[in-house]
């Protein structure tokens, strides 16, 4: 644990903070292009954030401290998670703070407080969003953990750096279990980041919105923090998927060249992932709330199949 590795840690957090809006912008741009709309460029999210940060805060009369504290907690926990996942190098002093299971529960903190904030104002929208979010997440979490367990069986560890190390720097083996787990993970990814078959990040229609319903009452810097955090969440979930299922390119140690290569590879992978995400979003229609049981049920089933195939085939 030298000063150098702490520098890497700081660089990674800065990278997360400032690359996340670009990734969100990239996804939006590709989506617009795919759907034949004009687009504002990948830097639009930065302008949105800057605009929100410079605005005053409008608070409902009966908003309690929970409502005011939530954006900070959401932002803090997201940055915290960003410091744990190996993005460009596995030499991270912070990575041992939490393993994959703890990471899943850290995401649960964000959800817990956002849902509370949704109920704080006392409008029907907020309560509806919270209720739906908690229902969906309670179905998504077992699927998520099963996918992660399957992936961890190969590395015999739930520590992310160790999993990356075994996958990327160990000898290459074809693992059918990981294919199943990857499918399950993608479905959970769509759920957790509120993408199309589950939720729609760009709608405010009362019948469909989930995440947006909870944060409907936010404004100014509070909204900016939440928006930024959810961009980072998209970035983190994508790079978590990369780290677990496709970690080649992440530097084994902290040498500068390796990290530069790592950053380049990460950018390329994220660009491809963004396109895949948009293809899924454009190709599918939003599902009815109660159809999600089947969607997440099949995610769980796929992850379980992955685990079965690990024990049977590997």
């Amino acid at each position: 644990m030298t000063a150098y590795s702490y520098t890497i840690e700081a660089v990674q957090i800065l990278l997360l903070l400032f690359a996340a809006p670009a990734f969100a912008g990239w996804v939006r741009t590709v989506k617009c292009r795919m759907q034949g709309r004009t687009y504002a460029g990948i830097f639009q999210p930065y302008r949105d954030l800057a605009k929100l940060f410079s605005k005053d805060v409008i608070l409902a009369e009966n908003a309690s401290w929970i409502f005011r504290v939530t954006p900070y907690i959401v932002f803090g926990v997201t940055v915290m998670i960003g410091g744990i996942i190996p993005l460009i190098s596995i030499d991270l002093p912070f990575a041992a703070t939490a393993d994959v299971i703890a990471l899943v529960m850290l995401f649960a903190i964000i959800r817990f407080f956002t849902a509370l904030a949704g109920m704080d104002i006392g409008t029907a929208f907020g309560g509806m969003g919270s209720s739906r979010e908690m229902t969906i997440s309670s179905l998504a979490e077992p699927a998520m953990l099963m996918a992660v367990f399957t992936a961890s069986l190969a590395a015999n560890s739930t520590s992310l750096t160790q999993m990356v190390h075994v996958m990327a720097h160990g000898e290459f083996t074809l693992r059918p279990s990981l294919a199943f787990a990857l499918l399950a993970f993608i479905m959970v990814h769509l759920t957790e980041t509120g993408r199309v078959p589950v939720d729609n990040p760009s709608t405010h229609l009362e019948l469909t919105m989930i995440h947006e319903a909870m944060i409907l009452e936010y404004s100014g810097r509070h909204l900016a923090l939440i928006e930024w955090a959810s961009m980072m969440k998209l970035f983190i979930f994508s790079s978590l998927g990369i780290a677990v299922f496709c970690p080649w390119g992440i530097a084994a140690s902290g040498d500068l060249v390796g990290m530069l290569i790592g950053a380049g590879v990460l950018a390329a992978k994220l660009a491809v992932l963004g396109i895949i995400l948009v293809l899924i979003e454009t190709g599918l229609a939003k599902m009815r709330l109660f159809r999600l049981t089947e969607f997440l049920g099949s995610a769980f089933l796929l992850a379980t199949l992955g685990m079965l195939s690990f024990f049977i085939l590997e």
């Binding site: 817990f112 908690m134 229902t135 997440s137 309670s138 077992p142 998520m144 769980f300």
Partner: peptide, 19 residues
């Protein structure tokens, strides 16, 4: 996985209780 389901449902339940 069932334990994970339990944990997630407990979180939902306490959002409800506190909220």
């Amino acid at each position: 996985a069932l334990l994970a389901l339990t944990g997630a449902l407990a979180a939902a339940c306490f959002v409800k209780a506190f909220g």
